[in-house]
Amino acid sequence: MTSTSPIETHVAPQADHGDPARSWLARIAEGRAWLFLAGLIICFEVWSRLSFGATFVLNPFNVQSIAIFAVAPLLLATGQTFVIISGGIDLSLGFIMGLAAVVAAHATNMAGVAMPVPLAMMLGILAAVIVAGVPGVINGLLISRLRIPPFIGTLGMFGVARGAAFLLAGGTTVPVQNSWFALLGNGRFYGVPYLVIIAAVFVVVMHYILSQTRFGQHNYAIGANVQAARRAGIDIRGHILRLYVLSAMCAGLGGALYAARFTAGAAQAGEPLLLDSVAAVVIGGASLFGGSGTIFGTVAGALVIAVIQYGLVFVNVEPFWQFIAVGLVIIISVLIDQAQRRFSGARQDE
């Protein structure tokens, strides 16, 4: 049999698993964070009306407060989304944000001595983002070159950034003397806070990077199967380095905006936000095992947390319940994710 006929073992075309009902369910599951958010808002609305006869969500003050409240955790969570999709985690983001807030305050004040106010503000923000990139570079090198697991490498950087931030701040908060900076943090454009506008633009740019560029595509591939990505010729080390610099710079911008909002830089600015950022990503539908997640899912996740925290205060519940509520939401979210995977996991050979 020197010339084997290809017809001999011809196999009928395979039907794929394109069941429309399943993909419809999958879509709901993907958008579950937004559904969750809607449900949560309705709950608080009912609660608020029954208890106080006042509206919750139709009050523009509430909406604005929640939006502002969500900005810093959202910036951290966007960077965290990239890292988690790649299969890593960045524990240093909270204190990188604190470091950046302190740097923003110092740099704006120093620049303000010699140059016009708006320029000093811009230099301050730029300095914060660039300085934040330094621990990002170190994270990236530790993880990509020295093969330290992300959890450990960024945990180390968590400590380093924390110490550096407090040392730089002299153990206290650093007030900012810059009128433009204060305006940026507290001013409004047609009723919409500048901070919210900046965050919205930022989110759209990050969504573009994640969903429409090679960098984003490679990020998903690395998270799913780093071996396959390497064999496909992707520069894994370079990617990981850029990835952690990106997430650190997100935290840097978060720190600068924090300093603008409170007109002061504080080393502990991002301390409570680190776990919120991971929670937002997970509630938003990303898997901690890597390979899945979206920026808009994370936006919903960050809003869910902000609504819980603000809403519980609004309806006069003791603040400690916030932690319990957010914790429960994380657990429920992961359970839904697992159930959905099991249900739509159409893989036949496992």
Partner: peptide, 13 residues
């Protein structure tokens, strides 16, 4: 990469 489409896998990298 299991999370990507056929096309994305063909063109990976």
């Amino acid at each position: 990469a299991d999370n990507l489409s056929i096309g994305a896998n063909i063109f990976l990298g």
